[in-house]
């Protein structure tokens, strides 16, 4: 890496550790999210873990690297997509009778593809929570944060 890159972000040890572990954190988040109806976990925890993997990247490598992997437009797109999936599944329940009806076939218990709409709702919730929290963190990072008195001097 060039010397210009080395100035953003933290030391070499932190960057190497982050590069080695960030994939596993992302994978663990996807596992927690997709098995939310079979084992402990679910949409909230999975979404926040996925957001934390990108936050880890941002803390280690500086904001430019993380924002090139996941730009802010993509973040807001994912958040709106999560809300839209949630609402459309809820509205599709009207085909069988009422709001939030579990209208897909239940499947066999203790398998990954079971429980009707619950995995899809988990996916929607995790998209919304993860994208929202990453957007909040990006907003905090971009805020130049020092008292106004020092700025005028």
């Amino acid at each position: 890496m060039s010397s210009k890159e080395r100035q953003t972000g933290m030391s070499v040890i932190v960057r190497t550790t982050a590069r080695l572990t960030v994939g596993f954190i992302l994978l663990y988040g996807i596992y927690i999210l997709s098995h939310g109806h079979v084992s402990p976990g679910g949409g909230f925890a999975g979404g926040v873990i996925i957001a934390l993997s990108f936050i880890n990247l941002m803390l280690a490598y500086g904001k430019d690297t993380a924002l090139s992997k996941l730009p802010k437009a993509v973040t807001s797109f994912f958040e709106n997509l999560g809300a839209l999936i949630l609402l459309s599944i809820a509205l599709l329940g009207f085909t069988g009778g009422y709001f939030f009806l579990n209208f897909i076939a239940k499947g066999e218990p203790f398998h990954l593809f079971s429980a009707g709409t619950i995995p899809l709702l988990n996916l929607a919730i995790s998209l919304k929570v993860g994208a929202g929290i990453f957007a909040i963190f990006v907003a905090f990072v971009l805020l130049k944060y020092e008292p106004e008195k020092n700025k005028k001097e």
């Binding site: 905090f140 805020l143 944060y145 020092e146 008292p147």
Partner: peptide, 24 residues
């Protein structure tokens, strides 16, 4: 818990703006 995170984040944002304005 998630709603608590949302309120905490809003409180911290307000505190950061107050610090920026008044320096304390």
């Amino acid at each position: 818990i998630v709603i608590g995170l949302a309120t905490t984040v809003i409180l911290i944002a307000l505190a950061m703006r107050i610090f920026e304005k008044y320096g304390t």
